[in-house]
């Protein structure tokens, strides 16, 4: 859709506002949906997302009235409460041209279920669909909307990494986007996980109610991670990261966790390299 190399349009280069319908990167307005877990547990990921998007020329806005997309309630069967929150989300992001979130599962909540939720509600059906159509997971947004090629941005990040593919990306049709971006980072050596497609066993309350099942699934992942011998795991979903990092720590598998947004921001020199 856009070419990442043409960062500014002619009008904005000489200090004018862009013409309506202008489609260069400087004119992409993005609203960030931070999600509850990233907000509280992984703020650095949020910071990285903002800085990378801005570096690429987007205008980033963070509507402070946002709370939660309702996923935990919806997944546990509390459909009415989830609907209330969904309406809130739709209202909060009403004017945003794009909504970008660092969490695949929250993006999937909106994209997979908001349509179904308001199927029979003439008042909300359309606005809900509107949010569905403009919501993207961060990595997906870089590739599908901004058409980013990191090689044009001199991203340098030295080290071996492995990558956890979060299941909810499946539902929104995201497959190897993160891997494609990783291949464009200088110095980054990617070592794929065995059983890449297998879930990490998080599943929200599932992890608490069925710890024996969830625990044995995540330990399987820990084994695969330690087999790679890498020091860093890239994981783009806060829920998965909490689960995986907690299990690695329990098992004595000494690895650090980062989101791809953090790696890119570090590689672009936008945030300090963190050694967790």
């Amino acid at each position: 859709m856009f070419s990442a190399s043409s960062i500014q349009c002619d009008r904005s280069m000489i200090g004018f506002a862009c013409a309506p319908g202008c489609h260069t990167l400087c004119c992409v307005n993005v609203s960030l949906f931070i999600t509850c877990l990233t907000d509280t547990f992984y703020p650095r990921t949020g910071i990285a997302v903002v800085k990378v998007l801005e570096h690429l020329g987007c205008k980033v806005d963070f509507p402070e009235a946002q709370t939660c997309c309702g996923q935990p309630l919806w997944n546990n069967g509390f459909a009415a409460d989830a609907k209330t929150l969904a309406k809130r989300m739709i209202r909060v992001f009403e004017d945003a041209p794009y909504v970008v979130t660092p969490s695949g599962s929250c993006a999937a909540m909106i994209r997979d279920y908001y349509g179904e939720m308001f199927e029979d509600d003439p008042q909300w059906r359309e606005p809900a669909q509107g949010l569905v159509d403009k919501t993207y997971e961060f990595v997906e947004f870089l590739i599908k909307v901004l058409n980013v090629d990191l090689r044009e941005h001199d991203v340098q990040w030295n080290g071996d990494v492995t990558y956890h593919y979060s299941c909810h990306l499946r539902g929104i049709g995201v497959t190897d986007e993160a891997e494609r971006l990783m291949a464009q980072i200088d110095g980054l050596n990617y070592m794929p996980l065995e059983k890449k497609e297998q879930c990490c066993g998080f599943g929200g309350t599932f992890a608490m109610k069925y710890p024996q099942i969830s625990g044995s699934i995540v330990n399987d992942k820990v084994d695969c991670i330690s087999q790679t011998g890498t020091a860093t795991v890239i994981s783009n979903d806060a829920g998965c990261t909490m689960n995986l990092s907690g299990a690695c720590r329990r098992a004595g598998c000494d690895v650090g966790f980062k989101s791809l947004a953090e790696v890119i921001a570090e590689g672009m020199g936008l945030i300090d390299v963190d050694v967790e």
């Binding site: 907000d39 710890p211 909490m242 689960n243």
Partner: peptide, 15 residues
């Protein structure tokens, strides 16, 4: 949760 794995706590500041 902690029967199967450790639980990370939030850092000092939020996003």
């Amino acid at each position: 949760w902690t029967r199967a794995r450790d639980l990370p706590t939030p850092p000092s500041n939020s996003f």
